[in-house]
Amino acid sequence: MRIPLAGQLPSVGVLKSAALWVVLVASCAVMISAGALFASKLKTNAAIDQLRAGKNIVIDPATASPALLDARAAFLLKRGRIEEAQPLLDQAPLRADDAIQMRMLYNMANARMRAAVREIEKGNFDKAIPMVSLAKSEYRSALRLDPGNWDAKYNLDVSMRLVRDLPQAVPEDEEKPLETPEKLWTDLPGTPKGLP
């Protein structure tokens, strides 16, 4: 093929070569960035797998990825280490999406509920009540982020029956607080523990 303006216009061969170089450089750039992202995600997944398997992987809350915060918080809260998990929950609103924040709040509230039930069994109601109240507020925050989460609804219901919300100093409600047909349970169900 001959181009009439050969010499003035770049020839077909030069254009072909230039196009191939452009494609090569662009695809190499995509390859490097996708590869780096892929590798970092695989690394995170490996850490998540280890945390799930019960291995104590320590992370830095300030720099860890949200998925890792989630997994580490789940690991700690499953073991009742609430104080250690709190810094992770403080980081979540800064970086994590709603699903991760919701899960972390839900797991934290569950850990508080389990701790509260342990205190109740020991008879320490004064310690248990603030724990349940915190759990309730965390279940509510979780439901604000995901109103359709049935586990959070169920557990909020459990915690509400444990320590009831009551109208606070609203004059017209003083006369008749939302009446229940009968007194069905006490605020804190004590577990009867008689002799065998």
Binding site: A34, T44, N45, I48, Y106, N110, A111, T191
Partner: peptide
């Protein structure tokens, strides 16, 4: 008797989804 205060189990933290990166890596 403890079932009244039994909560639903903890949520499991999911693994990251890597499909997009893998496809991008393969194609590039």
């Amino acid at each position: 008797s403890g079932s009244a205060v039994e909560v639903q189990p903890d949520a499991v933290a999911p693994r990251l989804v890597t499909g997009t990166e893998r496809t991008a890596l393969l194609i590039s």
